[in-house]
Simulated scan of single mutants.
Amino acid sequence: MKDHHMKVSIDRELLAKYIRRECTVQEKQRVEAFLFQPEWQQALEELLKEDFEAFDHVSYTESENISWNQHFRENYTHKQSGRFFRYSQWMGYAAACLILFAAGFWYFSVNQKTSVVEHQQVVMMEQVNPSGQRSVITLPDSSVVHLGALSSIRYPKKFGSKYREVILKGEAFFDVKPDKRHPFTVLTGVVQTKVLGTSFKINAFKQVMVSVATGKVQVAKLNSEGTTDKPLAILTPGQQVSWNADTNETKLDLVDIDEIREWTKGKVTFANASLAEIVETLERWYNVEISFADEKMARTRLSLIVKAAVPIQHSLDIICSTAHLKYKVAGNKITITHKQINRNMNR
C-alpha cells in the first residue's frame, strides 16, 4: 500500500540557500525531494491565492506547529496532483516557499478557517577574512569567534528560538556562551560540530579538524537526508578529531590545550610537520605566495612555533637555518631554494 504522507520536511534557511545556489549536493537533493511532492505544489498554489491583508499577526508556538502539520496531512497529503512537476519549476516553487517561510511557519487552526502567519524574517550576517587578516566576532548570543585568515563565517543577526547555528569556511576558534536549551552548531561542509557551551577550534581547509579546549563537543557527518547518523567523535578537553573527505577516514589525537588557546593570539605550534603544511599557514597569515625551487623540499619535516605578531622573515630564518635552505623575497612572492655548497672549502 502506497503511503501518501509527507516524507520530507524543510526549513526556510535551506530554501534560501537553494535559491542562492549555495547548497551542497545532499542539501540540493533534499530540497528538490521536498518540492517534488505534489501535495506541496497544490498547497502552495492555494496559499498564494489568499489575501495577505487578511492575515493576523500572531506569535508562533509549538502546539500551533503541530496543529498545522496535522491539518496539512489531513487536507493535502491524500490529494493527487495529476501534473508532472518539472525541474524548471523547482526554483519558482522554492522562491514561493521562501516567501511563506520567511514570515515564519504557516499553519491552519483546527477550530478556525482563518490562516495566520508569524512575520519573522531571518537576516544573515557574514564576515569574510582575506589572506593576511584575522578578526574577532561577537555573535548575537555573546559567544565569541576568532576567525582566521582566508576564512568566512555566516550567522543569523538573531538566533532562533530552538538552536544557534553558524556556517564556517576555513578556520576559527569558538568560545561559546553556555545555554543548555539552545545547542550551538557549526556547519563546515558535511560536518556538524554541536555543543552546549564550550571552547574549541575548527580547521576546515583540506580536511575538517576539531580540537577541544573546554567542555564537550560532538562531531558528526551529515547524511544525504541532511541529518546525522553515528557521531565521528565525542570530544573532551585535549582531544582532537580529523576527518578526510577524500578517504572518509577519521583520526583521533591528543592535543595541548594551551596550544589550542594560543592560536587566538596568533601563535601556532608545529610538531614534526611537513614544510608544505607550514608554508600553507604562512601564506594565509601573511598574504604571500611561497614556492619551492625543488618540490622535494616540501616533504621536509620540522618542528617550530610561528607567531603572527612578528615579521614572516623570523619564521623563514628558523626554517631555512634548520633545514639548510635559503629564501628570496620579491614583493609578496617568496622562493625557497637549496643552499649552495662552497666547493672551495673542500679543496
Score class of each variant (00 low, 15 high):
58 V>P: 06
237 P>I: 13
305 I>Y: 07
135 S>W: 14
19 I>K: 04
279 V>K: 03
62 E>K: 10
178 P>D: 01
45 E>H: 06
198 T>E: 08
185 T>I: 13
286 Y>K: 09
122 V>R: 06
106 W>L: 07
295 E>F: 03
71 H>R: 01
65 N>L: 06
107 Y>F: 15
322 T>R: 07
117 V>W: 12
298 A>L: 03
292 F>M: 12
43 A>T: 02
194 K>L: 12
189 G>N: 08
80 Q>G: 03
306 V>Q: 04
217 V>T: 03
146 H>C: 10
307 K>P: 02
268 V>A: 05
336 I>T: 01
324 H>R: 12
14 L>W: 06
320 C>A: 06
196 L>E: 06
330 A>E: 14
282 L>S: 10
235 L>Y: 00
177 K>Y: 08
310 V>F: 14
157 K>R: 07
18 Y>P: 00
65 N>E: 05
342 N>A: 14
182 H>V: 06
6 M>H: 11
322 T>M: 12
71 H>Q: 12
129 N>L: 13
176 V>Q: 08
287 N>C: 09
341 I>E: 14
27 E>H: 00
9 S>F: 12
177 K>V: 14
158 K>C: 00
174 F>R: 07
189 G>E: 01
271 A>I: 10
206 K>H: 15
335 T>A: 02
197 G>N: 12
291 S>F: 11
88 S>M: 09
26 Q>D: 12
57 H>Y: 06
156 P>D: 07
46 E>C: 07
297 M>W: 00
137 I>N: 06
341 I>N: 10
145 V>Q: 05
343 R>A: 08
21 R>E: 03
25 V>K: 02
295 E>A: 11
336 I>N: 01
150 L>R: 15
5 H>I: 10
336 I>C: 03
215 G>I: 06
258 D>C: 04
121 Q>E: 10
110 V>A: 10
311 P>N: 03
69 N>V: 01
107 Y>N: 09
274 S>K: 04
343 R>F: 10
227 T>Q: 15
337 T>H: 09
101 F>M: 14
180 K>G: 01
272 N>S: 10
1 M>P: 09
143 S>D: 13
229 D>I: 13
12 R>Y: 04
143 S>Q: 05
83 R>Y: 02
126 E>T: 14
289 E>N: 14
301 R>I: 01
24 T>V: 04
207 Q>K: 11
99 I>C: 03
135 S>A: 13
329 V>Q: 06
229 D>E: 15
285 W>S: 05
46 E>A: 13
141 D>F: 07
138 T>L: 05
42 Q>E: 12
167 I>L: 11
307 K>C: 03
133 Q>V: 15
82 G>F: 02
164 R>E: 05
299 R>I: 05
214 T>I: 11
287 N>H: 14
290 I>R: 00
145 V>D: 11
45 E>N: 14
59 S>C: 06
38 P>T: 04
283 E>Y: 08
228 T>E: 12
298 A>D: 03
79 K>E: 14
126 E>G: 09
154 R>K: 11
344 N>C: 01
106 W>I: 02
174 F>A: 09
261 R>Q: 15
243 W>D: 05
65 N>T: 05
216 K>I: 01
258 D>F: 09
221 K>T: 04
97 C>W: 11
346 N>P: 00
